[in-house]
Design a protein around this nucleic acid. Structure first.
Ligand SMILES: [Mn+2]
Ligand SMILES: [Mn+2]
Ligand SMILES: [Zn+2]
Ligand SMILES: [Zn+2]
Lengths: 142, 142
DNA sequence: TCAATAGTTTAGAATAATTATAATATATTA
DNA sequence: TAATATATTATAATTATTCTAAACTATTGA
């Protein structure tokens, strides 16, 4: 939804130089109507195969981590194999489809964020996230 | 809490041969009063350094995954670096201390398992888990 | 405008967790 | 106990990620 000049401002305002590579990655990640989830590999493949741009893998890693640090992205761990990133940085919960390995946002109201009745002493709660793992219901399977 | 002969039965009854290595790993994992969380590396180090036993790393991996498949262990992903395993296989929630990377079980009653008001159609809910990330409250830090 | 500087990109090497291979050893079965 | 199925092991392979250090680029301010 944002345009190139806006990305330039956005990057500058958080102390990141608006380079060609970062602007392209902003475009891929944020110039759309809906938030989504991706892996670094998805993103790199998208850039190189689909968009025919040449951005080194190291830069994709650097940029995604820089964006995460600036709060443009959230990182989500579902399995130890790889990290998922989320362009939806608000507090929200997920379904994880174990058949397809797809991560799906819970719409508002589907899950109420649980109350924590007693916290670890001396610690601050940084996040409360619910993960719902789903899979095909195969009652009649071997 | 279980003894060697019981582990032998337990393994046999789930179709796993009670080998020397598996019995030792059972002892380390299950012959205690409280459940706990560990990484494969923790476990391997514990066996080799603390117990002075020689079990190959491949066997530790094989065994932990075999135990997971048989339902003796649960796997938990908190960060993409490594997998945590849990000897508490009941449905329960966790605190994760981001200062120490420690995973802590939520005692019963601390968090109520949230209700899922609408599920993905055609799918069965396999688990609903809450992860609470905590860290030192540094209001007065640089 | 342009040189100095700080920040960025890059290819490729390094690291670390995990899985695969295939030979050897062990447990089970009859 | 012999035959068979299963498990262990050392080691190699794989994969995600991070590191390195040289080349490049954006910013700054004279
Ligand atoms: Mn795994
Ligand atoms: Mn990470
Ligand atoms: Zn999300
Ligand atoms: Zn636990």
């Amino acid at each position: 939804m944002l345009k190139n000049a806006e990305f330039t401002d956005k990057l500058r305002s958080s102390g990141l130089r608006p380079t060609k590579q970062r602007l392209k990655i902003c475009e891929v990640l944020f110039n759309r109507d809906n938030t989504f989830h991706f892996t670094i590999n998805d993103l790199a493949k998208n850039i190189s195969k689909v968009l025919n741009e040449r951005i080194s893998l190291a830069t994709v890693y650097n940029t995604v981590h820089a964006f995460k640090k600036k709060g443009y992205l959230k990182e989500i761990s579902i399995n130890s194999d790889k990290s998922y990133f989320d362009t939806n940085t608000t507090n929200h919960h997920h379904f994880f489809d174990e058949d397809t390995n797809e991560l799906i946002d819970c719409d508002d109201g589907i899950i109420e964020t649980p109350k924590i009745k007693k916290n670890i002493s001396g610690k601050k709660i940084n996040s409360v996230e619910v993960l719902v793992k789903v899979a095909t219901d195969n009652q009649n399977q071997k």
